[in-house]
Simulated scan of single mutants.
Amino acid sequence: MTVTVGALTNGFYVEDDGKGIPDSKRDRILEAGETEKAHWTGIGLRVVAEIVKAHGWAIQIKESAAGGARFEFHGVDCVPEQQHNGCVPSARSN
């Protein structure tokens, strides 16, 4: 599997070329305990959701161009990045 991180105008994205997340699960995939495997805890993406909330960002879950999962993070304080038409998340804390 390949994971790609890139800039958006007001944030960044993380996407992969894996099997993706079905539309029917996207609205609950960030909930505690949501998992596909019995031996997993289902807290990983819940932690991501809490970090997003703590920073005042928004998250969208989509399908990547390769059919995998794509997580877009919006409302991120960014510092200019000369090599991209987007932003790099600021190290500044709220």
Rank of each mutant, 00 (worst) to 15 (best):
E31M: 04
L30Q: 07
V47H: 08
R26I: 09
H39W: 13
V5K: 15
E31I: 06
G67I: 11
N85T: 04
E15W: 02
H39S: 12
A58K: 15
K19S: 04
E81R: 12
M1N: 10
E50T: 13
D23M: 05
A38N: 11
R26H: 05
G6R: 07
S90C: 09
G56L: 10
V3Y: 13
P80Q: 06
E50L: 08
A58G: 12
A58S: 15
N94M: 09
S64T: 09
G33W: 00
G18I: 06
A65P: 14
R92T: 09
K37W: 13
F73V: 14
K62C: 04
G33F: 00
V79K: 04
V47D: 11
E36G: 09
G20T: 13
K19C: 01
G42E: 01
L8V: 05
A54Y: 04
R28T: 13
V88T: 15
K19W: 12
N85M: 02
H74V: 03
T2V: 04
P22H: 10
G33K: 09
L8H: 04
E50K: 09
D23L: 11
T35M: 06
G56W: 05
A54S: 13
S93L: 15
I21C: 10
A65W: 11
G67Y: 12
A69T: 15
E63D: 12
L8K: 06
E36D: 01
T4Q: 13
T41L: 08
D77Q: 10
S90Y: 14
R28W: 01
E34I: 07
A38D: 06
D77T: 08
E50C: 10
F12H: 01
V48E: 02
H74T: 08
G67W: 12
N94T: 08
G67E: 10
Q83G: 01
Y13S: 03
D17N: 14
R92Y: 09
I61S: 01
K37V: 03
V48W: 00
W57H: 14
A38M: 05
T2P: 06
G56Q: 07
R26E: 00
D17L: 00
R26V: 07
T41H: 12
P89R: 05
S24P: 00
H84L: 05
T2A: 06
A49E: 03
G56P: 14
G75C: 08
G42L: 00
S24D: 09
E63C: 02
W57Q: 08
C87S: 05
G20P: 11
A32H: 10
G44T: 15
D16W: 05
V48G: 02
A91S: 06
W57I: 10
P80K: 06
L30P: 10
P22I: 05
E31L: 04
I51E: 10
Y13F: 13
T2R: 15
G86I: 04
G42A: 04
N85D: 13
